[in-house]
């Protein structure tokens, strides 16, 4: 039997080609200058992260990649080994400006923004001030003072929390509109454990939304926001983050197109079903009474009526 070739890892930059689903606003621009991918400090992790400035730095975008093992692209008459799909989506520059304002706040003084939003390690940082929204919206997170023609700013936790609160509400509303599952319980492709109350609660939505915002702010600010939202901190991590194991369940194995058994030959008798993966076996053992199938959540126009407690 021939030995299978050993799998070789995809080495640095051997692809030099990317497939990206991009916000049209990043493209529709009549300004001068090419859009640019830059590295900026991630507002939550502090690590270098990839962003995009549109022409003239008018808009800011973040870059995420759908990354799953064993994928490649056919693009026209070519193969691209790297099977990732990039998403270039709008990014609120305020999230990126916040850490610098917070840092400068220790001095307690009002300062001009261009002296605050600066980073030796990430020189592109100062370009953030060029975004349309940056200067017009900074008052959501900072107090403003005008002296002559110059503006000065100082970080305001109070304002920031209010701003973040509005964000959380916006996000929660968006979650309700979509079919995104925010409730507790094991999420699998065909079965979703349904709580006794049957639908995700207000709190579930708030926590989920808070979790999403927390991806863009520091841990300290995240905790302060949680308090501000009057959501108690959950004690065990198990309660906050339901296991995110996504179990891909096949339907019954695809059978051969033809029923070969008609020909009374043992070789074309129905093959036994493919071995179940461990995930499938585990799910098969789980008590599924009380579990709804995934499709029952997708009936059209089922609106979750959120109860005001």
């Amino acid at each position: 039997m021939a030995t299978k070739k050993k799998r070789t890892p995809n080495t640095q930059n051997s692809s030099s080609s990317w497939v990206a689903i991009t916000a049209e606003s990043a493209i529709d621009t009549h300004k001068d200058g090419d859009p640019a991918f830059v590295k900026l400090r991630h507002p939550s992790t502090d690590a270098a992260s990839l962003y995009l400035f549109s022409s003239g730095d008018v808009g800011l975008y973040e870059v995420k990649a759908f990354t799953e093992d064993c994928h490649s692209w056919f693009i026209g008459q070519a193969v691209q080994r790297d099977g990732r799909l990039l998403y270039i989506t709008p990014m609120d520059p305020l999230y990126l400006m916040l850490p610098y304002l917070v840092k400068a706040a220790t001095e307690g003084k009002f300062q001009p923004l261009d002296q605050v939003v600066m980073d030796e390690e990430f020189p592109a940082c100062s370009r953030l001030l060029g975004c349309t929204r940056s200067l017009s919206s900074v008052r959501h997170i900072a107090e403003e003072k005008e002296v002559g023609s110059q503006k000065f700013h100082r970080y305001s936790q109070e304002k920031t929390l209010q701003w973040l609160n509005k964000k959380v509400d916006r996000i929660a509303a968006a979650l309700r509109r979509t079919n995104i599952s925010v409730g507790e319980g094991v999420k699998s492709t065909t079965y979703v454990r349904v709580k006794a109350e049957s639908d995700a609660s207000d709190e579930d939505y708030l926590r989920y939304a808070h979790g999403l915002v927390s991806e863009y702010i520091s841990q300290d600010l995240s905790r302060a926001l949680l308090k501000h939202l009057q959501l108690p901190e959950l004690l065990s991590p198990k309660e906050t983050e339901p296991p995110s194991k996504k179990r891909k369940l096949s339907e019954l194995p695809v059978e051969a197109a033809e029923d070969f058994s008609k020909f009374n030959s043992s070789d074309f008798a129905r093959k036994p079903p493919k071995k179940m993966t461990t995930a499938q076996k585990t799910l098969a053992k789980v008590d599924k009474s009380g579990m709804k199938t995934m499709s029952s959540f997708f009936s059209p126009k089922v609106k979750v009526k959120a109860e005001r407690k």
Partner: peptide
């Protein structure tokens, strides 16, 4: 339920997280 299809939820949610308040 395919992960790729689900990943397409992202742009709409990004608008909520990053859209102007």
């Amino acid at each position: 339920d395919d992960t790729l299809v689900m990943s397409m939820d992202w742009p709409e949610l990004a608008e909520a997280i990053h859209g102007a308040v």
